[in-house]
């Protein structure tokens, strides 16, 4: 904590802002996708690559197939947005969005997963950055289907990065759709994030 300059106060702010952002996302999804969902209280931790790998592996059972969508976002606060959804959930999502009773095609599923990711990232990250009084730019997301929970390349584990992991879970109980969200930011970006939070705190104490 000392290394990254992130104090309990900073974490508290981030957590509170994430609560707001996630609440916002749930409302948007209800509006845009006609689905009522719940989102878990975000967890926030500071770790390194090995810790991130362990955290993801712990959060995602390895025996299933997943669709993983990765989207980069840029700006003063930048990083990577990850949305992980298991195959069954993804199929249900495809069914819901494409209004089909039979099994949706692989293309429908891909598209549906990207669409949900668009909404999640746009609402969560936009809201978070809005609260931090800064702007964000989103980049084209990409989805791939993988077996198991090896999201991080094993070679990457050798790179040392200080990483902030923000994670939460999203569930649409009626449609049996659930997914996990990870927002990752590292190294220099953490300093910038800290500066933004400091500004926010100053504003509040003023």
């Amino acid at each position: 904590m000392v290394e990254s300059g992130f104090s309990e106060d900073h974490l508290d702010v981030l957590k509170e802002l994430m609560n707001i952002a996630v609440g916002n996302a749930t409302a948007s999804i209800a509006d845009l996708l006609q689905t009522f969902g719940t989102m878990h209280i975000p967890q926030i931790m500071i770790s390194d690559m090995v810790g991130l790998d362990a955290y993801i592996k712990n959060a995602i059972p390895e025996e299933k197939q997943y669709y993983i969508t990765k989207q980069l976002f840029g700006g003063i606060f930048s990083g990577e947005f990850l949305f992980v959804i298991c195959e069954n959930s993804a199929i249900n999502l495809g069914r819901h969005l494409y209004d089909v009773n039979q099994n949706p095609t692989d293309e429908d599923i891909h598209d549906a997963v990207i669409e949900l990711t668009n909404i999640l990232s746009a609402t969560i990250i936009s809201r978070l950055t809005e609260e931090l009084n800064t702007k964000v730019q989103f980049f084209v997301p990409s989805t791939e289907r993988i077996v198991g929970n090896s999201i991080i390349g094993q070679d990457e584990l050798l790179n040392y990065h200080k990483i902030i992991i923000i994670s939460t879970e999203m569930v649409f109980e009626d449609q049996q759709i659930g997914g996990k969200i990870f927002i990752l930011t590292k190294d220099e970006m953490i300093k910038k994030l800290k500066a933004l939070i400091d500004q926010k705190l100053e504003e509040l104490y003023a």
């Binding site: 106060d9 508290d12 509170e16 802002l17 509040l204």
Partner: peptide
């Protein structure tokens, strides 16, 4: 439980 939330509300 969030200090920030309290601060911001009180403000």
């Amino acid at each position: 439980d969030s200090k920030l939330a309290r601060l911001s509300l009180i403000k």
